[in-house]
């Protein structure tokens, strides 16, 4: 599959570039990498990064440097559903460790692993700015807060159901 944005996404890229003064299109790199990650399977392959470099007329190494710096870019394929569970202080005070252990047990994977069916990846992350609603995790674009074992069961079931459709 050749890496190529759709017409609509290319327009989006143009719109992003237009946010900056003339000649500063490198500023579009982080938003465009987000767009690329969403569009090309939830992760950034070298091919995808080279494509973005060409699009923004910068060198590939400039893209690699940035993509490897920020924690939201996945440099390896991930499951269809990425559970990013916060483990920092305030969440820990509210039992995030137990939630992480429960998810591991439930999915049979360790942090950083993906289930055999390619459905779920578990990632432990640092504070996501939802400390008052702890424990919590990010799932796709949104946050799932006030996690309990039941809530985790429910989320997993919802994902499975959604994938089944």
């Amino acid at each position: 599959m050749a890496v190529q944005f759709s017409e609509e996404k290319l327009n989006k890229v143009k719109e992003i570039i237009a946010r900056y003064p003339e000649g500063k299109q490198k500023s579009a790199l982080i938003p465009v990498l987000h767009l690329a990650q969403e569009s090309f399977g939830g992760w950034l392959s070298a091919e995808t990064m080279d494509y973005v470099a060409a699009l923004l007329q910068i060198t590939p190494i400039e893209v690699y440097e940035v993509a490897t710096f920020y924690s939201m870019y996945n440099l390896k394929p991930v499951g269809k559903y990425l559970f990013e569970v916060c483990q920092t202080g305030p969440c820990m005070l509210n039992g995030s460790d137990n939630i992480i252990a429960y998810i591991k047990e439930k999915l049979g994977i360790e942090a950083g692993e993906t289930t055999a069916d390619g459905m779920f990846t578990l990632k432990t992350v640092e504070c996501l700015g939802a400390c008052g609603y702890a424990p919590m995790m990010q799932l796709g674009k949104f946050y799932k807060e006030h996690l309990t074992r039941e809530r985790v069961d429910q989320i997993i079931a919802e994902c499975r159901a959604q994938a089944g459709n």
Partner: peptide, 26 residues
């Protein structure tokens, strides 16, 4: 304009934020 970061606490530091806004490492 709204610019999204990509996961880096350090980009809250104002000069790292500026670097990031320029499309670089924070």
């Amino acid at each position: 304009y709204v610019q999204r970061g990509a996961g880096a606490y350090i980009c809250g530091e104002e000069t790292a934020l500026i670097e990031s806004l320029e499309g670089k490492r924070g």
